[in-house]
Design a protein around this nucleic acid. Sequence first.
DNA 1: ACCTGAACACCGTTCAAGT
DNA 2: ACCTGAACACCGTTCAAGT
Lengths: 178, 178
Amino acid sequence: MSVARLMVQAHGYNALSFREIGKEVGVSSASIHHHFPTKGDLGAALAQRYTDDGSVALEKLLATSKDAHKCMTGYAAIFRAALLNDNRMCLVGLMSAEYDDLPDEVRTEVDRFADVNVKWLTEVLSLRKAKTGKDAIQHQALAIYAAIGGAQLVARGRGDIAMFDRAITAYRAAGLIP
Amino acid sequence: MSVARLMVQAHGYNALSFREIGKEVGVSSASIHHHFPTKGDLGAALAQRYTDDGSVALEKLLATSKDAHKCMTGYAAIFRAALLNDNRMCLVGLMSAEYDDLPDEVRTEVDRFADVNVKWLTEVLSLRKAKTGKDAIQHQALAIYAAIGGAQLVARGRGDIAMFDRAITAYRAAGLIP
DNA sequence: ACCTGAACACCGTTCAAGT
DNA sequence: ACCTGAACACCGTTCAAGT
C-alpha cells in the first residue's frame, strides 16, 4: 500500500498500475487483485488510510500548541513536505483533479479528507475569533484549505517549492491565514 | 481539437485517448497521429491554443474596465464557467496535477499559461496599489492565481459550485482579492 | 487463503499499404 | 497529403488452475 500511495502522489489515480505495484513488491498483478478486487477498492483503501493518518497528525499538532499561528505554520509544513518528497502532491488533491474518473468508494474517502481538514481548520480559527460567526469561520476554513491546495498544485506545476512559500506568505500578509 | 480539449478538461491529460477522439470525429486513431505524431504534440497544441484564447479574453476584460474589483469579478467568473460546464476544470490546472507525466513540450505551455495569468493579475493589482513594491504585488498575483485554482479544484472534487463561490467570497473578505 | 499465467478489451505508437 | 488496418507492448479485470 505504501508503494501504491507514492505512485498516486506522483502520478495520480489513473496512472496507478497493478502491474507496476506487482513489479515493485515482487508478485503478479493478479495476486494484488486477490486483496483489492478492483482499482476502486485499492484507491479507497489508500485514501482511507491517508485520511486517518492525516487526522491523527492534525490532532497531535493541535494538542501540541493552542496557538493558531503556530498551528497554521505546522499545517502548511505538512503540504510543503509532500513537495519536498520528489515534488509529490497531497494524495487527495491529485485525486480531486481526477474526480470524474473516481469510483464512488474513492469519492467518499476524498470527501471525508476535505471534511476532516476543514473541521480542523475551523477549530484552529476558532482559537482566535471567538466573536466571529460560525458560518464565516467555516467559509474561511474552506478557503484556506482550497488556497493551500492551490499553492501546492501551482508550485508542483512549476517544480518550484519557492512558489509555495511565496503563496503562503501572501495568504498571511492578506490575513487569510493566521 | 475542441473534442480533445473537452476530454482533457473533464478527465485530464492521461485519460486523453486518440481512439476516443477518432470515434467522436469519425476517423481512425492512426489518422490523428498523422496530424499530431505523439500525444505530447496534441497536448502542447491544446495548451497553446488554450493559453492564447485565455490571453485574448483577459486583455479584453482589462480593456473593458480599468477597475480592479470588476476585473477580478470577471476573472473569477471565467474559472466558475468551467465548473458550470459539466464540472470541468481549467485545462492547465488539470495538467498541472499530472505534471510528472507531461512531455516537455506540454510543460512549456503549462508554464506559459501560469505566466500569462500572473502577469495579468499583476497588472490588475497595480491599478490599485501604485505605492506597493513590485515584488509584493507579483507575489500576491501568484497567490491569487493559486487560490482560485485551488477553489476550482476543491469545488470540482465535491461537485458543488457553491464551494467555489464561498472560497472566492472568503478571499475577498480577507483582502487577498480586490 | 494466497498466488499464478493466460485471456479479454482497452491504450499510445508504428508502419506498410492504400487513395 | 491524408487515411487505414494490423501489429506491438502496455493497462484493468477475469478465471481456471495451482499451493
